[in-house]
Design a protein around this nucleic acid. Structure first.
Length: 114
DNA sequence: CCTGTGACATAAG
DNA sequence: CCTTATGCCACAG
């Protein structure tokens, strides 16, 4: 039996860790994928702990508008943006450019794998 | 059980 | 464009 006892946080970490480089997703998308579309805030909150985990690239998780709303939780001020740009994502003023192009939908990519 | 919180989402002014 | 307000839900104390 698959351990479905995983806590919400745990799931968030797994999904986030599966985000390919150069791609980004939204808190809502992850939350929805986890079956808690309205708990997008939980995803962000979970990311708080994720910052302590290498496998969880929190910088690849942004809000629906593609805004780096969580950058304030990173070490520096533009660290999150730097990381994204380092992966080939153009970020201007904390906003991801060509978001649709970089958007990674867990539903689309992981649907049925959970 | 109740309260506080939070890196969202949406609406309204 | 901006700030406020509300909903929503899971977790911590």
């Amino acid at each position: 039996m698959k351990s479905d006892n995983k806590n919400f946080f745990q799931k968030v970490y797994e999904v986030a860790s599966q985000i390919p480089e150069g791609r980004v997703t939204s808190y809502g998308a992850i939350a929805k994928y986890l079956g808690a579309a309205r708990s997008a805030r939980m995803v962000g909150w979970a990311m708080n702990g994720a910052g302590n985990i290498e496998n969880v690239p929190a910088h690849r998780v942004v809000n629906k508008a593609g805004l780096l709303t969580g950058k304030h939780h990173f070490d520096g001020t533009n660290l999150m943006q730097q990381l994204l740009e380092n992966e080939g994502i153009e970020v201007i003023d904390n906003q991801i450019q060509n978001l649709e192009k970089h958007f990674w939908d867990p539903y689309k990519e992981l649907k049925g794998e959970l």
